[in-house]
Design a protein around this nucleic acid. Structure first.
Lengths: 351, 351
DNA sequence: TATTAGCAATCAAAGCCAAAGAGTGCTAAG
DNA sequence: CTTAGCACTCTTTGGCTTTGATTGCTAATA
C-alpha cells in the first residue's frame, strides 16, 4: 500500500472541495481541468485508484467519478483544510448582529443560531452545556400573589428564574425575606450537583421551613433536568431540504425527526471534554438510528466560562472550512463584544 | 345549475372523507362499492359531473377520478362533517398528559402542542395571543447582583419575568423595595397597552427614579414585542413530510420555511375575533407567498381568559373531523383539569 | 325523467429498448 | 513514471408501446 504523497494529498483535497461544491462525483478530467492541467488524466486515474485503495474514495458505480469517504473528510478536516477568510460582508453581518444588546442567555443562543444559519446557509443549533457545576451565588424568593412565589436562583452561569412555587397558605413578605436569607445560607456557594443529592441538606435547623425548602430543591432539580432540552435552539431547518442529499423525503424526514427528538439528541451532543471544536461525521456509533449527517459544533466560552455549544447540521458533504471559520469568528465575537453586556455571565464574587 | 340534493351531499361527503384517507382521486366505482352499492356508477358519474359543475370537484386529467376543491372542504367542515368520537385510548392519552403539574404558561403551550401532534399525527403549533389587554397586578424589582436587577411583572394573564435591568451604580435592597412599591402605585391596574403609550406616566413625582422607570417601561415594551414570537411552539415538523402532498421537497421546504418565519406567520394567525375555531383552508389572501396548506387552530380559554391558540398545520386534505374533535377535547381538558394548578392564570384581585 | 349498460375515448403510468455519453481500467509505448 | 488510445461499463435520456383505470356519451330501460 502506497503512502499519501504531496500530489495525492492535493488531488484528494481537490476532490473533497469540488465535491462539497458540486455534490456530484468528480472525474479524473475534472481534476485535470481545474487543478492539475500539467499532468494527464490517465496519471490522475492512477492516483485515484491508489487513493481508493487507501480508503479515501469510492465510486457509486464503475463508470462514474469518485466521491470522498468519511475517512477522506476526516483527513481533510485534520490536515488538508485551509482556514477560509470570511468576506467583509460576512464579518460585518456577524458583528452587526452581536452589537445589539442581549440580556439573556437564551437570547444569545437564539442570536448565535440565527447568525450561523444565515452565514453558512446550513441548519444551525445552539444549546447550553451541563449546568451541574454551576455555583449558586444568590437565592431570592419573591411573593407574587397570595399563595404564589417566584424562586430566583443566581448562579455563576446565569439566572434560573422559571420556577413558581405554590404555597398552601398565605404568607407575608417577612416570611419570604427570612426564607431568602436562610436559603442563601444553606445553598450559597454550593454547586447545583450538590443540591440535587437527596437529603443532604436537611440536617440544618430549618424549623417551619421544611416544606418550602423541599419545594426549592425540587425546583432546582426540575430545572436541571430541563435545561438543555428547553434551551435548545434550532434555526433554518428548511435549509436542510436545500441539500441534494435530502431530496429524498424519507431521508429528510429522518434527519428532521432526529433534530426534534431533543431528549435523545442532546446527550450525544453534550461533551464534557474541553475541546474547542466537535466535528461528528457520519452516524454516531452510540445512536445507530441517526441518519447520515455531519454535526459541527464549537464550545462557546465567555469570560472563561463554557456557556454552551453552537454549530451546524448538514450532509456529510459539508463545507467544513467555511463552517469552522464562521464558528471560530463568532466565538471570538461573542467573547469580545458581549462579555460586558451580559451581566448574567459576569462572575463577581458576591461577598 | 342544480342544487345540492341529499344524494349529492352524501356523494360529496364520501369523496371528501375517502380522499382524506387515500390521498388519491376517487372514482365513481369507488363510491359505488364503498358507499352507494344500490345505484350504478353511471348514475354516480352524472352526479359527479353536476358536483364538478357546482365547483366542488375537479379532475387532474380527464380520465381520472375526482378530487375535492377547497370549496368542498369548506362545505364539508360547515355542513357535512360528523363530530368524531375519540377512542378511549386517545382520551386517556390526552388526560394523562395534562394530569402532570404545569407551572408555566410556556409549559402548557409545549404540552398542548405535543399532545395535539401525537394524537392527530399532524404538525402542531401553539402560541399566546395578544397581551396588550393584560392588566398589571404586581411589580417587583429584585436585586440579583451588585448592578443587576430582575424585573417581575405579574399580570392577570401571567408573569413576565424575562427582564434583567442593568444599573449604573450599586443600589441596596431598600432602594429596590422603594422602586417596587412606587412601580406598583404607578403601573398597578393599568393595561400593558397603556404602559406602552409614550410619555404618559412620567408626570408622577418620580424624583431620582426616572432612569429605572424608563428601563421598566422599556422592558415591558420589549416583552410585548417578543411575546408570541418567543412563545411560539412547533411540534412534529417532521410529520409534515409524511404527507404525500409534500413528497416534493420543494413544497415541503416552502411550508417548513413558512413555519420558521414566525414574525410573518403570527400576524396572520392571531385573531382578535372571539371565534372558538379558526379553519384556514388554502392560501391566505394576505400572504400570497404561503404554500398550499390548511391551518386549524382553536382559541384556548382558561377561567374565562383567552390564553392563546393551538392547532395543526397540514395539507388541505386534512382530517378536519378528527382534528376538530381533538382540539375540542383538549380545550375542555385544559380548562377542567388545569385551572386549579396553574396559579399564574388565576385572577384573584390583589387588594 | 331518472337510471343504467355498453362502449369508445383519454391519459397517466409502466415497461422496454436503443442510443448517447461520461468515465474508467488497462495496455503498450514514450 | 507518464500518457495516449481504446474497449468496456453503466447510467441517463428519449421515444415508443402497452396496460389499465376512468370517464363521458349514447341509447335503451323503468
Amino acid at each position: 500500500m502506497s503512502s499519501l504523497t504531496a500530489r495525492k494529498a492535493k488531488i484528494l483535497k481537490s476532490i473533497v472541495e469540488d465535491y462539497i461544491n458540486q455534490a456530484e462525483p468528480i472525474s479524473s478530467s475534472d481534476i485535470k481541468d481545474r487543478h492539475l492541467p500539467e499532468i494527464s488524466s490517465a496519471t490522475i486515474r492512477n492516483e485515484l485508484a491508489a487513493l481508493e485503495e487507501m480508503g479515501y474514495l469510492y465510486q457509486p458505480h464503475t463508470s462514474s467519478g469518485r466521491i470522498p469517504t468519511k475517512e477522506a473528510y476526516k483527513l481533510y478536516v485534520e490536515k488538508l483544510m485551509p482556514r477560509k477568510k470570511l468576506s467583509k460582508a460576512e464579518l460585518n453581518l456577524i458583528k452587526s448582529h452581536f452589537n445589539q444588546q442581549m440580556l439573556q442567555l437564551k437570547d444569545v443562543l437564539k442570536k448565535t443560531a440565527k447568525v450561523i444559519s444565515e452565514v453558512t446557509n446550513y441548519t444551525s443549533l445552539a444549546f447550553v452545556n451541563d449546568i451541574s457545576e454551576a455555583v449558586i451565588e444568590n437565592i431570592k424568593i419573591v411573593k407574587l400573589q397570595s399563595k404564589t412565589a417566584l424562586v430566583i436562583v443566581v448562579t455563576n452561569l446565569g439566572v434560573l428564574k422559571d420556577a413558581i412555587v405554590n404555597l398552601e397558605e398565605e404568607m407575608d413578605d417577612s416570611y419570604f425575606d427570612a426564607v431568602s436569607k436562610l436559603s442563601l445560607q444553606v445553598f450559597g456557594g454550593k454547586k447545583i450537583a450538590q443540591v440535587m443529592k437527596p437529603n443532604k441538606i436537611i440536617n440544618t435547623a430549618l424549623k417551619g421551613y421544611q416544606k418550602i425548602f423541599d419545594a426549592i430543591i425540587d425546583i432546582i432539580k426540575k430545572y436541571y433536568e430541563r435545561v438543555g432540552v428547553e434551551d435548545f435552539v434550532l434555526e433554518g431547518a428548511s435549509k436542510l431540504l436545500e441539500q441534494p442529499e435530502y431530496s429524498n423525503v424519507q431521508q429528510a424526514k429522518s434527519i428532521i425527526a432526529m433534530l426534534e427528538a431533543k431528549e435523545q439528541l442532546l446527550p450525544a451532543l453534550k461533551t464534557t471534554d474541553n475541546v474547542e471544536l466537535n466535528i461528528r461525521i457520519g452516524k454516531d456509533e452510540r445512536y445507530q438510528s441517526l441518519p447520515e449527517c455531519a454535526i459541527v459544533t464549537a464550545n462557546y466560552i465567555v469570560n472563561g466560562k463554557n456557556i454552551g455549544q453552537a454549530g451546524v447540521v448538514g450532509p456529510i458533504r459539508m463545507d467544513y472550512s467555511k463552517v469552522v471559520s464562521v464558528l471560530d469568528y463568532i466565538g471570538k465575537t461573542i467573547n469580545d463584544s458581549i462579555q460586558n453586556r451580559i451581566n448574567i455571565f459576569i462572575d463577581e464574587k458576591q461577598k
